[in-house]
Design a protein around this nucleic acid. Structure first.
Length: 262
DNA sequence: ATGGTCGGTTGCCGA
């Protein structure tokens, strides 16, 4: 089974890139974040035409929004309202194999890493705290689950271009890394990207639009993640960041991440 | 210390 996760930054604007991804890699499942489309406007027809006939999505007007595109049936849709908000950050469904797929978009958290002056940072921390409680409490530990998406935190030193320079930059602050690690520990799952490419090998999935030459500067961060529950831990065949997609015409600022599972 | 670029609820806000 081949699955790709991608923060697409507007699915309607970047439909040609979804087509290119489908043509080049032919994933069975594509999980999207930042679709930026409300449900009534979701582009079902062009996605069905690509072979993704089974679609789950949850979006609001203008921002956020997540989706799962599948060639085979998806049942039992779930969308948890994290921190009590129905803001299009989570969709999940179950494949015929019994594998449960979650597409998640954790809040970016704004610019200032201080919840007393920045509500968005507080929202992000509360969101990760709720993940830490929700998954272990609501999902059996022997169930095959893949959780993917833009988690908006780069936890390891080698997940950012400069650990020292990013210590006060939202996405890599100590409090975020602490909460992210607490979630990983509570889940007891596997970081599939780092199982295939262990630290300290640099590994990034996002490069800012603001760089003159993103590839030459390579000031990246690993904000997108693939977590596997224990029953899937020894099923990994390969994981790749599709870095070239960051250089396609009119790109997202995130690269897709691909996993092949037995 | 600053500004740099995107997309959409556009002339701002969120990223």
């Amino acid at each position: 089974m081949r699955l790709v996760t991608w923060n697409i930054n507007s699915v309607r604007l970047r439909m040609p890139l979804v087509e290119k991804l489908a043509a080049e890699e032919n994933p069975d499942i594509i999980c999207l974040q930042e679709t930026k489309v409300q449900d009534k406007d979701f582009p079902e027809e062009p996605l069905r035409a690509l072979g993704y006939e089974h679609l789950l999505y949850r979006g609001i007007k203008g921002y956020n929004g997540v989706a799962i595109l599948s060639k085979t049936p998806l049942t039992n849709p779930i969308s948890h309202e994290w921190t009590g908000k129905a803001d299009g950050r989570h969709i999940a469904g179950t494949l015929e194999s019994g594998l449960e797929v979650h597409s998640l978009y954790v809040p970016a958290g704004g610019d200032e890493p201080d919840r007393t002056i920045n509500d968005k940072f507080g929202h992000k921390l509360d969101f990760v705290d709720e993940m830490t409680d929700w998954f272990p409490a609501n999902r059996a530990s022997d169930k095959p689950i893949i959780l993917v998406g833009d988690l908006n935190i780069a936890p390891l030193e080698s997940d950012v271009w400069s650990h020292k320079k990013l210590l006060k930059v939202v996405s890599h602050t100590p409090i975020e890394v602490e909460k992210f690690t607490a979630a990983e520990t509570a889940f007891g799952w596997v970081d599939a990207m780092r199982k295939v490419t262990p630290a300290p090998e640099p590994l990034y999935t996002w490069w800012s639009y603001r760089a003159r030459d993103w590839r030459a500067a390579n000031k990246g961060r690993r904000l997108d993640h693939i977590w596997l529950s224990q029953p899937l831990a020894d099923k990994i065949r390969d994981v790749r960041v599709l870095v070239d997609a960051r250089g396609w015409e009119k790109p997202s600022d995130h690269a897709p991440v691909l996993i092949d599972l037995d």
